[in-house]
Write a protein that binds this DNA or RNA. Sequence first.
DNA 1: GATCCACGGGAATACACGGATG
DNA 2: CATCCGTGTATTCCCGTGGATC
Length: 391
Amino acid sequence: MNLEERIERRRRSDGRPTPVTDYDAISPVSHPDEPTGRGPVLERLLDHLDPAFEGRLPENAYLWGPKGAGKSAVVSALFAHLAALTRQSRSPIPTATRVERPAVVDFVYADVRTAESDFALYHAVLDDLTEDRVPEQGVGTAQLRSRLRDRLAARDRGVVVCTDHVGEPETHSLSAVADLLDPVSPSLSWLAVGRRPPAEVEAAPEVRVEVEAYRRHALMDVLTARTSRGLGRHALVHDQLREVATWADGDAHDALAAVFGAADRAARSGASGVADEHLEAGMADVPRPCVSLGRVLALAENRRRVLYGLVSLDPDRMQSVGAAAESVAATEVVDLSAATVERILYELAEAGVIRRVSRETSDGMGRPPSRLEPRFPTSVFRQLYALTANR
DNA sequence: GATCCACGGGAATACACGGATG
DNA sequence: CATCCGTGTATTCCCGTGGATC
């Protein structure tokens, strides 16, 4: 928490004790350095990556499991640590016995939510591996691939690329990632992370690691760890945590979203703790099924703005896509034509971020319009949007 | 000049309905 | 009664354009 946030918190709370001490700690989109309760998965991943510690490249692999099971938490923490580790030993010590082998293996974490195009994926990997800046425009995708190939050849060390969030509506599928990364170099292997069971996934590699949803008790541990860092003492009591954990049914994302929403409500109302009514409201704000906020916040700037405009709208302006588009376009948040906003709204509906609910009765002429319904926790989104907007 | 990407606009298609037609 | 047609919307699809960068 930086100074600005501290001051803002005091200003809002008029100096009274506030239930929230660190929004980041209870945010459903932030991952702690040490994920809670996923030790066994971590062990299995380390087993798989073991060859890397001897300079050999692990095989391609697929990590899969349902939303909110801590997949991203595990891989982002793991790859951050591994990357830091190999960065320390950037100067390989050549030994007589291992001249042919790369001395160390690098680890790169790439989120395909933010690297949606072929170009962007190559860019993300190359950028992580290179000191100097990689051009974002003006060079072709093929050229970027060969640059990456050259880079790997020049260093004579392998790299394991983790591609998180594979196979979502608007992200690369696992097979697309394979098609992009496999031809680059034999000294590159990948660990894809996604939700779909390997049986349903095309080109899933032999090595697979499954992550199951949290059991209720494990989820309570997660919530306890998070709230003890982010909330004041006794802001949320044990019974309340249990209630959220039960309600969330193993999904840490949804649970944290509810807690975040509840805590924020409590803070705004000036309460020193999270009351049951805050908690109820926090849970009510999370639709089921719920699109993860990570996905929503990873959308392109203008899409986020459109969504922000949308969730700030009077509900009766959401009764038709056209009307919603018009209202959002009239807002200060976006500088787009109504036609473009409308297209974007359809796009977001197609991706499942918002839902179109067709009307039962059709009065008047023509095809009846459909109402729009966000599929993510709107109040949490607004708060996170505001927190990230001024950075 | 090449390249990536987001916009913008509009054409094509789908859908809902009432009324006409076979 | 089943089907077709016209009209008005909603929705999807496609492609040219232009900014920014190399």
